[in-house]
Design a protein around this nucleic acid. Structure first.
Lengths: 346, 346
DNA sequence: CTCGGCGATGTAATCGATTGCATGGGTAGC
DNA sequence: GCTACCCATGCAATCGATTACATCGCCGAG
């Protein structure tokens, strides 16, 4: 491994000059620069990152933590992060927290030890020590939230308008004539779930006013975004005395579970039960029936979080920015008007 | 940020002693050690990784490259890698190569620059420069292959017995009475696909011998593991003059695509077409019908690759080891005996 | 002709740890 | 009581870059 010393010797200059050629090419004379560059690639030199890091306190690394990397929604966002990061000359340190606070703390410590220049966390949980750090450093804290937006944490974030998106999904169901809708949320500790639930309630209210008394109610169950939870909760809801005619799941994964559950109960989708998911993961269009869902721009969320982080790292961030990216309700075949007999109209 | 100097001063010892307390506690007297440790946590000291890295040439990082992180199979393997790595005190640098050679080279360069102690690559492609490095360093090269096994590359690896697994899947279909089977492979550049195909052929031959002339043939199409490819290729195969009565896809994703395609053609699974997938991703059991598939121990593959890499890094590896982990054919509802009329027996 | 100034380059301190070698005190063996 | 050795610890070189400051030569203005 050639060092900067070797290059300097081979080009007949000092290490300072070599360093300048590589980082501030303008400050060194044309001829010298050429000589140095020749030496650089004849020796195949590339700077030692550890030395550079020690000196500059910059790692060129972004730490990305995610509650569950095997969740396709997150893995698509991460793909976007990786893409944008590597385009900007950063590498990605991956942390799968598995929803465990100790692991969150462990990764938080990495950031505090400056093993990465910044942190992008997907999901809503930020370790306490980092929350303090964010509060202390203000907009300069190199921490960005992806997918979620927690007003309590004063950090930049990239996400969709979850409330609005959920309201649209519900409006779609009400528009089709559904009156009893079951909702399978994510953990309510997450603002994202609460926002969506708020959207759901707002839509229900509007629908109730428009068709006075026609909305019979909302069954709400709290899931954890997994197929298994979707299946279990959908089964419960659909086994109730007056089951909903439509189900809205806060993730496509849960919708997949719900689909399996309703089949298990001998019900058909959308004939007996309409189903709406959330995320539009790659498989949503390939389910049977193809899933109506809220499409999130996953790659774009990833890109945007990186952009926000780089903005902070370059010192240009005056205040946290919360970027709302566009979502889209994708109507496929899993939603339809309820069969007349089923809808016990008020 | 407290440095080792601060700790030394505060404990009234030299930096050498502090360093020894932290890395070779046995070599320092009880009383001194206690004093140093007290100073360490009163100052909240933790060593600067860049400095340590510079001095020791160890990064405590593992680079993991993957052709597509958004593929749930890979993301589950990565989850296993991350888990084992972090348990061993390593962090994971993620590289999504997107099947692009330039990105592979870019990450290969990271390893050569020693930005990570070792590389785990999922998939079959290893950049040329690293292949040379592996050849040159022999078993000492800190490179491990996950999921795949390429005899040409003398590197350690963790994977299942793909040939055997594919043969079992085919035997299952033949055992049910299928005679015309369509196979949707992955890219044949990958040994994994070739191994599975060899298993398929071997099984076909055995079935042919056992039930003389009964096996009418094998339609083989080459996919790329994606839902889209699965859908397109299945559609083609099933539209043939004498379509297969069963399909074997080399990934669950492609099987999902195939499922959608056959429904699109008005066919039912398993009544008209049986379907076997590969991987047993989390969703396989939730499809309609639940998918018969070859289950791979994804987390375990991840763990094992880390174990192999650590073995190399500790200098204990005398020769590359290729670890075969157990797979399991999981029979669910997507496979059944072909309907009599459909099977145009010889 | 001289001096100020600037552009190009070199010198050397510095980042924060690790570690080979030196040192000094204590102990055991004879 | 002396020597030899060992254990605990300190000293200082070192890893490979960056960069503030010093230096040198040259040019143009007065």
């Amino acid at each position: 491994m050639a060092t900067i010393q070797d290059v300097a010797r081979s080009a007949g200059v000092s290490t300072a000059t070599v360093s300048r050629v590589l980082s501030a090419p303008g400050r060194v004379a044309e001829a010298t620069r050429a000589r140095v560059l020749a030496a650089v690639d004849s020796l195949g030199y590339s700077p030692n990152v550890a030395a550079k890091m020690l000196r500059t306190l910059r790692t060129q690394k972004i730490l990305v933590t995610v509650p569950d990397i095997s969740n396709p929604f997150f893995s698509q966002v991460i793909r976007g992060v990786e893409e944008a990061a590597s385009a900007a000359g950063y590498s990605v340190l991956l942390g799968d927290t598995r929803h465990e606070p100790e692991r969150e703390d462990q990764y938080a410590a990495m950031l505090r030890r400056k093993e990465a220049d910044g942190l992008i966390f997907l999901g809503h949980r930020l370790s306490d020590t980092l929350a303090e750090m964010a509060a202390a450093l203000g907009p300069g804290a190199p921490i960005v939230n992806g997918c979620e937006y927690s007003p309590a944490l004063a950090v930049s974030s990239a996400h969709i308008d979850n409330q609005q998106a959920a309201a649209e999904a519900m409006a779609h169901l009400y528009g089709l004539g559904h009156r009893r809708v079951g909702v399978v949320t994510g953990p309510l500790a997450s603002p994202l779930s609460r926002d969506r639930l708020a959207g759901v309630r707002a839509a229900a209210q509007i629908a109730g006013v428009q068709a006075a008394g026609a909305v019979e109610g909302l069954a709400v169950a709290t899931g954890d975004f997994s197929v298994e939870a979707g299946a279990a909760l959908a089964r419960d809801m659909l086994s109730a005395a007056t089951p909903p005619t439509a189900l809205f799941c806060f993730s496509d994964e849960m919708a997949m579970g719900a689909l399996a559950a309703l089949r298990g109960l001998g019900l058909a989708c959308p004939r007996d039960v309409s189903l709406v998911g959330f995320d539009d993961i790659r498989f949503a269009a390939y389910l049977d029936p193809p899933l109506t869902t809220v499409s999130q721009p996953m790659a774009e969320i990833g890109h945007e979080t990186v952009r926000l982080l780089l903005e902070i790292l370059s010192g240009q961030a005056a205040a946290p920015r919360n970027v709302t990216l566009p979502h889209r309700l994708v109507v496929r075949a899993s939603t339809a008007a309820p069969v007349a007999g089923t809808s016990a109209g008020g």
